[in-house]
Nucleic acid binder design. Structure first.
Lengths: 264, 264
DNA sequence: AAGTGGTCTAGACCACATA
DNA sequence: ATGTGGTCTAGACCACTTT
């Protein structure tokens, strides 16, 4: 059936050649999103190579996020999930105006249904990097809230928020239940409004546990966002450690030359 | 030599068990950064599995960014490269104060030597997403400057900057050489100061071409930053499309409750 | 029952890096 | 020359999903 053949004498391996071929077809649209590819045994016959070669080629495409394999079913051109935009600028504004968690408000903007599973609330010794940001001694106890946030019942973000004891000890922030207004609003209600904050982003590949929790396809990176809020007197209020599925999120920021204010 | 053995009857595959074992050892530090792992044939004998199993396990760790393989040499615990912080807030400030490209200034902060290779300067029809940001018709010609930016002679960023013809046509921005002051300063010198801007980030896996250009290890994602500058009257000046090696960069941002100004 | 991808074996030859 | 990872073959059995 296939016109193009693979060249065993090429310096590109057979698997790479086959992957290149399929990538081109997918990008050109001659294999549409969601459509099923031939089975591995079919490829084996069609191109006269071993199944190992076919699997190596398909695995490479899986890692590029181009196709997905479903055990016992087949291999398919990957459907790109919808992308949610996370806007740094709006985060702080939102939690002031709405009396709901920022996550819920941003989900609503995209017409998606937010939910959350509390994974645990406890006192723990602070990891070293968290302790540094909170400007406390390494190993000192902090209040940790771990939760999994979902969009339309699909896992989207793993969150861990760290609060210093002087702020959170004995307060509603140690409650094992979800906080109706969201943690940021609770901190403000405790008399500690945030005056400014920093966010630091890094992208990397997930480990197996993270991949399981977020139900990630193979070849999907994660973005780790570390978010630190400060009082007006530059005292750290919290460190939020959020892990985003990279195929479902993009991050937006704005800057203005002093005094300017851009439109919405 | 090894005490721990693999269990063929487990529901976790032999490769996964071996990968888990090695991951634990690496994280615990009993295998230090840069140290060489046993060869694939040694693992084969030590654990009584086929080379396929060993390779699957090692490949998984490669994809997690934990180890690197060097053909004809061996497999090693990966050394994490130094991380450069890219700060949104400082970008605009920097290009005003220093008369150099932002990239050069930020590199200097980290004590690293910046350089660049111009990949090409040309007029091309604008891709659809770029045209949308520039608020021009899809397919209309724009000036495109493509370059590869390096730190200590290591590829770090693939950049493509798009300028509308009304701004860049016939100007120094069409020069095939590197711009001493950097494109942002040149645009301002042409009488078009930027008043505000937006940045949008997404993380994904690179395709083979991007991996080659950036000399990426396997399992390293890329971060695509789309940067758009506007005049005071909200007219788009340029779209910068930058592709960062994710293992060498982190991205930082700040927000302030209106009026506040955080410390450096 | 039939077909799919997932795992695993036991070989082979190659290209590359070091000594 | 030796040892390394890279590629490839030709099988086998398993677990899963559909018809």
């Amino acid at each position: 059936m296939s016109r193009t053949v693979l060249d065993p004498t090429s310096d590109r391996s057979l698997a790479v050649q086959l992957a290149d071929l399929l990538r081109t077809e997918i990008r050109a649209g001659s294999r549409s999103q969601g459509s099923q590819l031939p089975s591995e045994r079919e490829f084996e016959n069609d191109y006269g190579v071993s199944r190992t070669v076919v699997r190596d080629a398909l695995d490479a495409l899986v890692l590029e996020g181009l196709v997905v394999k479903r055990k016992g079913f087949g291999t398919f051109v990957r459907q790109q999930p919808p992308v949610r935009r996370v806007s740094s600028r709006s985060r702080h504004d939102l939690h002031r105006t709405a009396n709901k968690p920022v996550f819920d408000v941003e989900a609503a903007i995209h017409g998606r249904v937010p939910s959350r599973r509390i994974l645990g609330v406890s006192r723990e010794p602070a990891p070293t990097d968290i302790a540094q940001w909170l400007e406390i001694e390494a190993g000192a106890d902090v209040v940790v809230r771990r939760r999994l946030q979902l969009l339309d019942d699909q896992p989207a973000v793993i969150s861990a928020s760290y609060y210093p004891l002087w702020l959170a000890g004995g307060t509603i922030l140690e409650s094992p239940d979800a906080l109706k207004r969201g943690p940021d609003a609770e901190i403000e209600a405790l008399g500690h409004p945030a005056a400014w904050g920093t966010e630091v982003f890094r992208a990397r590949m997930p480990d197996p546990q993270e991949r399981r929790l977020l139900a990630l396809d193979a070849g999907v990176p994660v973005v780790r966002m570390l978010h630190i809020d400060y009082t007006e007197s530059n005292c750290p209020l919290q460190v939020a450690d959020d892990l985003y599925a990279a195929d479902q999120h993009e991050f937006a920021f704005m800057w203005t030359s002093e005094g300017g204010s851009p439109p919405a």
